[in-house]
Design a protein around this nucleic acid. Sequence first.
DNA 1: CGTTACGCTGACGTTAACGTCAACCTCACT
DNA 2: AGTGAGGTTGACGTTAACGTCAGCGTAACG
Lengths: 135, 135
Amino acid sequence: MTEKPKTDDAMTIRQMCDAYAVTPRTLRFYESKELLFPIRQGTRRLFTKADRARLKLILRGKRFGFSLEDIRQVLDLYDRDGSNQAQALRTYEIARARLAQMESQRAELDVAIAELKVELLAGEAMLATLPRAAE
Amino acid sequence: MTEKPKTDDAMTIRQMCDAYAVTPRTLRFYESKELLFPIRQGTRRLFTKADRARLKLILRGKRFGFSLEDIRQVLDLYDRDGSNQAQALRTYEIARARLAQMESQRAELDVAIAELKVELLAGEAMLATLPRAAE
DNA sequence: CGTTACGCTGACGTTAACGTCAACCTCACT
DNA sequence: AGTGAGGTTGACGTTAACGTCAGCGTAACG
């Protein structure tokens, strides 16, 4: 039993779009970039459960700010051999590097926010000196 | 006295590049986008004190994540009439909007960082289960 | 059999902020 | 006159992640 991972759960491109809030163009684009591998029924694409799993990872990766290329590499590693420790380690390293980037970016953002707040205070002070034309 | 804001302090493009760590292309690009207005000595550009002040603001704006177009608008307002309260107010509003963006971005980044950290912990756990091929 | 829905494949367009030539000028020397 | 440094103006290239056609197929409905 449980021996039927065939096309039981295949979804059309439109169903995918509705389910994941992406455009057809996006899905085709991801396929062209080898991020997704929908099967074909004639000329049409059918997205399997595996594709949906990958798409979820892709969208998550994007939220993290990974580039599609980064994401592709990680997906490749998962696909090729999920139980290879060298590859798992590589994935881990990529993620760690990205985390470092994000934390650095956040630090810069914090500085910029602080500076901008100072500017705003100065701006408010200036505005207060010339409150003419009070309707 | 103090009546000579002529070309006393004009700088060549190369001097500007060295002073502000930008390329000539960048300065010419900024001029084409009407962010800078270097005077001409024959065909060559000479950047005045005013240009340097603007460039500093531009670079600062970029650190804040403003687009060049945003920056141009603000510079225009300053230039046109620095003491116009309506314009100062507009500048203030632009900056406030940008600050809101930045804080929202920071919040998202925080979430993404937190999530990614969770993933990393999971990754570490997984790596720990298969510590084969030591060394 | 006509139309409507859905899908497919190119292929060019978009946005930002410059990078990267190529071809030319033009001083200051030597 | 030659040469080298530094400058100028086009104008096309780059990167990411799709958007936006145009033109075509095909499958079901009425």
